[in-house]
């Protein structure tokens, strides 16, 4: 099998594994029809986390410091949201949906306003879009009853949510560093897209750059780790069973089994004795939290 086919084969296996793990959890979770929104929100967040992992896994060209943190930051957000909702599912799942619906109504109103000044050619398309938005909101709640909340959906900062969920370290060492990339702060941009000019005579000026970064499988490993965290939080809090997700380990073993020849394995066993863990190039130092 060619190496490209082997890689594609691995992606298919990862995709199938994650989908299977997600499906098993959703099947195991009995919805309470007095508050269906709890089921809807928890399983949707798990699906979101799984989607992000699969999408990142299938695009190795994104496994670098420019792009991977965009996924990883979104995944930390999902995990903190999930962990916080799990502390009081009844109230918080509803809160989460209400905020989302509020956002949808707000956008709908902007679109309606845009319709007034739209040219004849695009009016029909816009009207169709508005009808679709409205229908999505109406299936959940009459849109005229939706309260629009433009603040944080939980009424708390992400840090407060993480603190309450007992995962403040995760917030400090993972969410915050990856946020630098997501928000393109100088801390990220100054390292990845700028640097002092070569000559000391122009050292005051930093040159724009797009540094070449190799794909680093560590980013996939982190994504799998955060997916494990979310699945495990769900196992404990929603399913009331011990955490059982080991997708990160499974991916490592799959890579090992599929890509290392016998010779490589022998070499690697020697190296692993002197060097523990994969080399990390893109994530913050404590992203493994």
């Amino acid at each position: 099998m060619s190496s490209e086919s082997k890689v594609e084969d691995l992606f298919r296996a990862i995709d199938a594994k994650i989908r299977r793990e997600l499906s098993l959890r959703c099947q195991a979770y009995m919805p309470d029809f007095r508050m269906p929104e709890v089921f809807n929100v928890l399983t949707a967040l798990l699906a979101r986390q799984a989607t992000l992992t699969i999408e990142l896994a299938s695009a190795p060209q994104l496994w670098n410091g420019h792009s991977a943190p965009l996924f990883l930051r979104a995944m930390t957000d999902v995990h903190i949201t999930l962990a916080w909702i799990l502390l009081d599912v009844k109230t918080r799942a509803r809160q989460y949906i209400d905020h989302g619906l509020g956002q949808a109504v707000l956008e709908l109103e902007h679109r309606k306003k845009g319709l007034e000044s739209a040219d004849e050619g695009s009016k029909e398309d816009l009207e169709q879009m508005i009808r679709a938005y409205q229908a999505w909101i109406d299936t959940q709640r009459w849109n005229f009853l939706v309260e629009i909340n433009v603040g944080a959906w939980s009424g708390k900062t992400t840090r407060e949510m993480a603190d309450e969920a007992g995962i403040l370290d995760f917030y400090n060492y993972v969410y915050t560093p990856f946020s630098q990339c997501a928000h393109s702060t100088w801390y990220h941009v100054g390292r990845y897209n700028s640097g002092p000019s070569e000559s000391p005579l122009t050292r005051q000026l930093w040159m724009p750059r797009m540094i070449e970064l190799p794909s680093d499988v560590w980013n996939l490993s982190l994504a799998a780790k955060y997916l494990d965290k979310s699945f495990n939080a769900f196992d404990e809090k929603a399913l009331g069973r011990p955490p059982s997700s080991r997708i990160r380990d499974w991916i490592s073993k799959e890579i090992e089994a599929r890509f290392r020849s016998e010779d490589d394995k022998q070499d690697a066993s020697g190296r692993e004795k002197s060097q523990s863990g994969p080399h990390q190039t893109a994530g913050p130092p404590n992203a493994d939290k």
């Binding site: 000019s197 000559s199 005579l201 122009t202 000026l205 040159m207 724009p208 750059r209 797009m210």
Partner: peptide, 12 residues
């Protein structure tokens, strides 16, 4: 100094 050592953006 910038006149003496103009910046080179070819790396982009």
């Amino acid at each position: 100094s910038l006149d003496l050592r103009p910046l080179n953006f070819r790396n982009l």
